[in-house]
């Protein structure tokens, strides 16, 4: 690991100006659970590391009538410790409580998980199915980007040099809705998804038909994948195993995985079907309880 400078800004404007310095080679540090490991391995270089943990906007976690404002540096632990947030967004809790281990969840942030842009990120599919929107600040002001458009490839995202992710805003969950994220890993902890699937469903008033649905997949494409068609085909369909299997097949159709040490193409496509069906069943269960 090569020597680097370290700065702890205390305001968003200071953070933005630090990120713009150093010819754009500055990196934000939240929990450091990805950044420091990659710097040690020589896979990321940073002359300046900017600590996000003292910038108020980056550490906000607030639940209002309009939804959730999730500061980019908010740790996973703060999410699963916050009962109203867990009640309102159980799928976010699903994601935040399976990343790494309990110790890692105390450091790792949801925003960092998104910015790291791993195809296997466990939080990102949940943010996508909840129609999350990213607030990005930079030298030219702020802009908004839907979460599903944030990642551009393995390890890359839409942030331009000098820009940083401020927060992710999730709209409030509508009535009769539910969501779930699950992944497949050979180990029960400390593992990376072989495949993952998040589902959000809204049921009609009878709770017997799908009013809307969003499905998103992990680890089966160069980026976390928004499987729009798979969710759309559920609209108006009755809640039954046939509809669920159709959506699962549609999700499989958009998965474009690779074979690597974590799994094969065939295994991953198969798992997308299994996991999507399981995610939908659980999301329906939650919607009916809501």
């Amino acid at each position: 690991m090569i020597d680097f400078d370290y700065a702890v800004p205390t305001s968003l404007s200071e953070a933005v100006s630090l990120m713009g310095s150093n010819g754009g080679s500055a990196r934000m540090l939240a929990g450091g659970t990805d950044l420091l490991i990659m710097m040690r391995a020589g896979r990321r270089l940073a002359k300046l590391v900017v600590d996000a943990k003292s910038v108020p906007e980056l550490n906000e976690l607030s639940l209002t009538d309009s939804g959730l404002n999730l500061g980019a540096a908010t740790s996973c632990k703060r999410i699963w410790d916050d009962e109203p947030v867990v009640q309102a967004y159980p799928a976010l809790n699903d994601s935040a409580s399976i990343i790494g281990s309990v110790q890692i969840q105390g450091r790792a942030s949801v925003g960092g998980n998104l910015c790291n842009a791993a195809p296997s990120a466990d939080c990102t599919p949940t943010l996508i199915v909840h129609s999350g929107v990213c607030t990005i600040a930079g030298p030219n002001g702020t802009r908004q980007v839907p979460v599903e458009e944030f990642c551009t490839g393995p390890g890359t995202n839409v942030l331009q040099p000098g820009e940083l992710l401020v927060n992710i805003k999730l709209p409030s969950a509508p009535t009769n809705s539910g969501a779930h994220y699950l992944r497949f890993t050979p180990r029960n902890e400390m593992d990376i998804a072989v495949a993952g699937s998040a589902a959000f469903v809204q049921l009609d008033e009878s709770k017997q038909n799908f009013a809307s649905a969003r499905i998103s997949l992990a680890a089966v494409a160069p980026t976390p994948l928004f499987a729009k068609a798979a969710g759309d085909l559920l609209v108006g369909k009755p809640v039954n195993e046939e509809s669920i299997q159709q959506a699962a097949e549609a999700a499989k159709a958009v998965a474009k995985p690779i074979t690597d040490m974590r799994g094969t193409v065939d295994q991953r496509i198969h798992l997308v079907g299994v996991l999507t069906a399981r995610a939908l069943r659980k999301a329906v269960e939650r919607a009916r309880e809501a």
């Binding site: 281990s101 180990r187 029960n188 902890e189 400390m190 990376i192 040490m261 974590r262």
Partner: peptide, 28 residues
Amino acid sequence: LNEEYFFDNDGQMRNSSFLDYRMPVALD
């Protein structure tokens, strides 16, 4: 159940970390 060196065709180990070399954890 899970432990193995995953070599590519050039004899490079692709999982030389405890993250991807899957020893059991307590929950397993």
